[in-house]
Nucleic acid binder design. Sequence first.
DNA 1: AGTGAAACGCACACCGC
DNA 2: GCGGTGTGCGTTTCACT
Lengths: 159, 159
Amino acid sequence: MSLSAKLDSIDLRILDLLQQDATLQIADIAAQVGLSATPCWRRIQRLKDAGVITRQVALLDPQKVNVGVTVFVSVRTNNHTQAWLEEFRAAVQAIPEVVEFYRMSGEVDYLLRVVVPDIAAYDRVYKRLIASTPLHDVSSSFAMEELKLTTALPLSYVQ
Amino acid sequence: MSLSAKLDSIDLRILDLLQQDATLQIADIAAQVGLSATPCWRRIQRLKDAGVITRQVALLDPQKVNVGVTVFVSVRTNNHTQAWLEEFRAAVQAIPEVVEFYRMSGEVDYLLRVVVPDIAAYDRVYKRLIASTPLHDVSSSFAMEELKLTTALPLSYVQ
DNA sequence: AGTGAAACGCACACCGC
DNA sequence: GCGGTGTGCGTTTCACT
């Protein structure tokens, strides 16, 4: 967890590969970036220790686990107190159907991405939401089609 | 890639673990779900073959790769033709800063999540967006705080 | 910082239940 | 279907450049 050292272009290529597929063998990665296994392994360790690579996870097919419907929920409040936020935050974070949750600038105060099997299930999440804390306005938009969804961050801005 | 067989509660516990940490050793997972290594390994293989587990990726710290700013972009079009959609889709999918991209119901036609280092960088993405295809209306909302962001899907709806 | 080889440990196959 | 034992292979270490 040392302070982030600078990343060179080989580090970026390694990160790019691991963002796409973390099951790649070190020897394969090494070959693709023009290194042998040992220095490649050391670089990956360094990236983990520095906290650049935070975790390694399995991604599931939403359809196969029956959460093929994505809903974006815009929330406005008229209670802008610390206590209210803490209560709302805790309640929302505990809802597993909420996979993203942001405090926003502008018109909307909070934006949530919720995944559910169908509209009926969304309605139950909605009721759980409005039961948690007093909300001034809640507006739901359904995603009709998922055109892009990636965990890979762009690497062009790395210092 | 066989047709998805039913998943029992042990499969769900395995998926739950792998969604959190795909570096877990099979022996550890097996112990946690009350199995020995071999049947646990076979279940994981089955889940991969069935397409329930789609991939295994490394997640990076957005701050560490200098994309700490998240922007949601709402797009409206007045050109609802197939040709326009194809052009827009291809243009947006090619922008690496766009990490999510949905066609929506309701007021907004498309919703994008964009990650960038700062507002100036967002402006360049914005200009690239409006240069790609004619858009009727584009509205940007900045995330002030990321309260929850997970790749782990809820497993309570699995048939 | 990189290379090559050696040692270790785990994923994976085979077999029996 | 589950469990145990083994073996090959990939990861990780070490000695050296």
